[in-house]
Design a protein around this nucleic acid. Structure first.
Length: 432
RNA sequence: GGAGAGGUGGCCGAGUGGUUGAAGGCACAGGUUUGCUAAACCUGCGUAGGGGUAAAACCCUACCGGGGGUUCGAAUCCCCCUCUCUCCGCCA
């Protein structure tokens, strides 16, 4: 959520910065108009309330003196005033509701280091690690490898839950589990994150807090209890562990000396992918459920961007240690996610696809999420400030899985296991 | 699911419908004392919104889990919801 005071003070700047993300400038005008009428109503209502409070106080004082009968007319007058106040308050809360709704629909402002551009074409590759591995044979795609080695049973996955749901089997299931353990251990032991294991369903407040709602409600799976429609919308399957973990301290006031808070969490991620039907239906690249290890940081505004770079390094480390070729992309204004001020995507090379796959997205949301969550910290100067909230995948598993098996496949159809995973998998090679 | 008890400021914890934004304590900040530490003492210390100011000061409004209601006036009375705890039942 944007800082309303900022928008009020610098409307032109706000318009310009949001325009670079494709937000129509008149959205700001509408916002300011609603805000102005709200403030007008509020001032009127508060003036009336002040009058009523004074009158009530006076009635109380006179009743103590014993005057009761004469006060009836006065009471009636104040009662009438109360009715007026009630009507005005209804108007105020209506204005507040529409102001809030408008505010919740606006995306974050891009950081000044983010390149301007409409879409992915304007993104900038800022770093490349390694190079595509060389093969003496035509590398197979992950679907073929999964089928021949029985790592994933696509047909039965679809039988159980529909297309876009994966049934890992045998070595595939073990590799998935090994990756989860490996990633958590790396971030806990090497990078100093505190491991948490969150609920996989959250309430709507959490979804609003991270910026998923109200705008992306249709991308989520809403659950209900049995056929009790009244419970629908009370909980949602999480699209990422960011939803529960970033909200851990929602509504709290942290001490500055406990920052930065660093959490990592494994969770499955559930995404309806509404509107994405037809693309990438086969395979593991775009699915409705996948595993991910997520990194979350809560930091002071001074440290926010240093932490962003650090977190990006933590995600890159995964791919470096596994010996995978990847590149880091700085997203342009038009491609940056709703809640983010600055985002790096990390894309790993998948030789069988002949393309890069996004396995991580590392973002600083600045105070966009903390304002929505009313998450604050008490600064050393004494005031309550909004911290920066960062999130990054460390990393998404299904696509990492794809890159791994495609990269380490051998001509005989077996797959070599990179050294860091061997202790977890207790083998150096997967073969049929 | 059933029964009961409870949700008050960063934390603990008082609170008779009317100067209670809220006693007291802890924590915290500043000060006095002190060889240092500790202790003691003094002072200060909620949040949000609106108005106001060059910036302050200052003024107003709201907030005692959330939402309604009663009343001239609600932390305090009534109703609904929610969460926590204890006991019972069911269950991985």
């Amino acid at each position: 959520m944007l800082d309303l005071k900022y928008v009020r003070q610098s409307p032109d700047e706000a318009r310009r910065r949001l325009a670079s993300r494709g937000v129509a400038p008149d959205r700001i005008d509408e916002l300011l108009a609603v805000d102005e009428s709200r403030r007008k109503l509020l001032t009127e209502a508060e003036t009336l309330k002040a009058l009523r409070n004074a009158a009530s106080k006076e009635i109380g004082a006179r009743m103590k003196e014993g005057a009761s009968v004469e006060l009836e007319a006065r009471k009636a007058a104040v009662r009438e005033m109360g009715e007026r106040i009630a009507r005005m308050e209804a108007q105020v809360s209506e204005a507040e509701a529409s102001l809030n709704a408008a505010l919740l629909e606006l995306p974050n402002l891009p950081h000044h280091t983010v390149p301007e551009g409409r879409d992915a074409a304007a993104n900038v590759v800022v770093h490349t690690h390694g190079s595509p591995s060389h093969f003496d044979f035509k590398p197979r795609g992950h679907v073929e490898l999964c089928e021949s080695l029985h790592l994933v049973d696509f047909e039965r996955g679809a039988k159980l839950s529909g297309s876009g749901f994966l049934l890992y089997t045998g070595w595939g299931a073990r590799l998935e589990r090994a990756l989860i353990s490996y990633l958590l251990d790396l971030h806990v032991h090497q990078h100093g994150y505190t491991e948490v294991s969150p609920p996989f369903m959250v309430n709507a407040e959490c979804m609003v807090g991270v910026g998923q709602f109200p705008k992306f409600l249709n991308q989520a799976y809403a659950v209900q209890e049995g056929l009790d429609g009244a419970t629908l919308g009370q909980r949602y399957l999480i699209p990422t562990a960011e939803a529960p973990v970033a909200n851990m301290h929602r509504g709290e006031i942290l001490r500055q000396d406990e920052l930065p808070k660093s959490y990592c969490a494994y969770s499955p991620c559930f995404r309806a992918e509404a509107g994405a039907a037809g693309m990438q239906t086969r395979g593991m690249i775009r699915v409705h459920q996948f595993d991910k290890v997520e990194l979350i940081k809560i930091a002071t505004p001074q440290e926010g961007y240093a932490e962003l770079e650090r977190m990006r390094g933590h995600a890159e480390r995964v791919l470096q240690d596994l010996g995978l070729h990847y590149r880091v992309v700085l997203l342009c204004t038009g491609d940056t996610g709703f809640a983010s001020a600055k985002t790096y995507d990390i894309e790993v090379w998948a030789p069988g696809q002949g393309s890069y796959l996004e396995v991580s997205s590392v973002s600083n949301t600045e105070d966009f999420q903390s304002r929505r969550m009313q998450l604050r910290f008490k600064s050393e100067a004494g005031g309550n400030l909004l911290p920066h909230v960062l999130n990054g995948s460390g990393v998404a598993l299904a696509r990492l899985f794809v890159s791994l098996i495609e990269t380490y496949q051998k001509v005989d159809g077996s797959i070599a296991i990179p050294a860091p995973l061997q202790p977890y998998l207790r083998t150096d090679c997967i073969r049929a």
